[in-house]
Every structure is written in C-alpha cells, then in structure tokens.
Design a protein around this nucleic acid. Structure first.
Lengths: 167, 167
DNA sequence: CAGTATCCATAAAGATACTG
DNA sequence: CAGTATCTTTATGGATACTG
C-alpha cells in the first residue's frame, strides 16, 4: 500500500494579524504548510482533470480512465483515493454483479470545481496568446544562439589569423 | 540544455458546435491537446507559487528562491523559463555588477493570477474541512483494517476448531 | 468490473559543483 | 548573483498477475 500525506501537520495560517507587506512572502512560505500541501494535491495534473470531468455527472472507474487520456490505472486509482480522502469525491459501491463503482463530486468538490473551471476557461481564452508567446520566445532563443555561433566563429577566425601571422 | 514543449501542436478546441453532451468527455480528452499542456504547466506546483508571489511586486531570482520554500535552484530556473516562454512572466536583466535579474508578471500573467488567487482563497477557506475529511477517512480505513483482521482471526479460529474436531 | 500488488524502464525532481 | 551542467534519487507510467 502507498501512503498519502502523513508528514507533519504544520498549519501555518495562524499568523494572526501581522504586517501586510511581509505577509506576502510568508503566506505559503513553509513547505510543510497545510495550504501548500492541499494546493499541491488539487493543482495536480490528474486531480484537476478528474474534478473537471466529474462535475457533469458521476462516472465509473473505467469511464474516467477512458475520458482522461494518458492516465494509467495506477495513477487514476491513486488520484481518486486522494480526492476521496480529501472529501472532494465520493465513492459509491453498487453491490451488483459485475461490480459498479461510481465516483462523484461531493458538495465540497463541487465548490472547488467552480474555481477549477475558471482556470480552464482562462486557459481556453488565452490559448492563442500563449501559443504566440511561445513561438516568439523560441524564435528569439534561436536567433540568440545563431548570433552566439557567429561570434564564436568570428573569434575563431581572428585567432587563426593571428596565429598565421605569427607563424 | 533542456527542451520545453516541442511535441505535436495538437489543438483540439476546434470541434466547433458539436453535441454538448458528448463534448463533455472530449473537451480536454486528448493528452496532446494544447489546453491540457497549458493546464499542466500553469497548474504546476511551482508555477502556481511563483505566479502568486510575483503578483505583489517584481522579484529577483534569489528572492523567489527564498520565498518559495523547498524549491531547488534548478526547478526555479526551469519554472521561470517556462513561464517566460508562455508570456506570463518577463525577465529583465540589469547590466550591473553583481548582475541583477528581475522577474515580474506580464499583463497576461496578471490575468492568470486572478484565477490562481481564487484557487488559493478556496484552499484557505476549506482547509479545515479538508483536514477533517482526511482524519475521518484515515479513521475509517483503520477501522476497516481492524475489522478485516478480526474476521481473519475468526476464520482462523473456526478452521482450527474444525481441524481439531476432525482429528 | 474495479481494483490492488509487484516489477521494471523511464522521466522528473533534488543535490551538488561549477561558470560568466 | 544568476544561473547551467552533472549526478543521484525519487516519482511515474507500463505490463502483468491476482483478488472480490
């Protein structure tokens, strides 16, 4: 069996009313902070997709597996157990033959989905901008490398010329 | 040098106006979908924190390193390059001695921060609920295991009794 | 069907050392 | 200071076998 988050409890949001300016660099500073742990969990690649998909209707294990392209059986099981443990997803076993297990968002999970959705919507809205930024960046890097190569070649040529002259 | 996202372009949001019900399981189904790739990037553990921290003011490399507890130099450099490539963060080199490099959110990055913030706020708001859910889950699992152990012991006892009787 | 358990190959993250 | 290069460790994914 694999373990989940069994490290130190480490709650860090108990700083009370401190200086607002310094709080900035402190709000989720410590790694063992509970908020950081939760964020790591829900901002996870697979968790995000699972929650997004479960919003519409309950889904079975295999339905999720098919819907989330690229996830392994192991990772899906793991992700679902984590989400269940955090109270975001409920697992319902129907005592039928063959067995049927439905996963669905809890009330808590549904509230999370709202913010997740805004993230997805943002991504869709700015997809093109990001693609353009990437293209521009890659082009710039390529140009810089070419430039560096040219300069290196030039230095080489000068060095060779000097050596030839000295000879 | 490490490469970034250089796989197939794979845009999948071009399905136009299809059946809304089926679109659900298709909206980010394919792994090489551009939206999926962007989500994986921005929903990343470190990216999230970097963007959250950069919202307040520009920060230097080392400031970020100190502010994001637990991040390695390598991962910070990597994360920042990714964010820069995606046009979310700008990198400004000041030609001073010692060198000074400022990172700050771009306009695009600032819009993303809005949704990231809602995620962080959600986490803070529901931190306690999640903690309770975890405790309840862990307790339930422990009880189930105890129960299973008891049943196994009982079966053992019965089996032994039968064997004794047969003997 | 819905998993868990295990072994293995690979990829990502971490630690460390070194450079402009 | 702001990184890159390199090596090590850990996490993840794939395949397979096995339960209830």
């Amino acid at each position: 069996m694999e373990d989940g988050t069994s490290r130190s409890p480490g709650n860090c949001a108990d700083t009370g009313a401190v200086d607002g300016e310094f709080d900035v660099l402190n709000w989720d500073a410590r790694e063992d902070c509970e908020v950081r742990q939760i964020l790591d969990r829900i901002a996870d690649k697979w968790s995000l997709l699972a929650i997004a998909l479960l919003d519409r209707r309950p889904l079975r294990f295999t339905e999720l597996r098919r819907a989330i392209d690229g996830i392994s059986q192991r990772m899906l099981a793991r992700t679902l157990r984590h989400l269940e443990r955090d109270g975001l997803v409920s697992r319902t076993v129907h005592p039928t033959v063959p067995p049927r297990v439905d996963y669905e968002l809890t009330t808590l999970g549904a509230t999370l989905h709202e913010t997740i959705k805004s993230l997805v919507v943002w991504t869709e809205d700015h997809q093109r901008e990001i693609a353009e930024a990437r293209t521009a960046y890659d082009r710039r890097i390529a140009q810089e490398q070419e430039q560096a190569a040219r300069e290196a070649a030039e230095r080489d040529a000068i060095a060779r010329a000097v050596l030839t002259g000295e000879r």
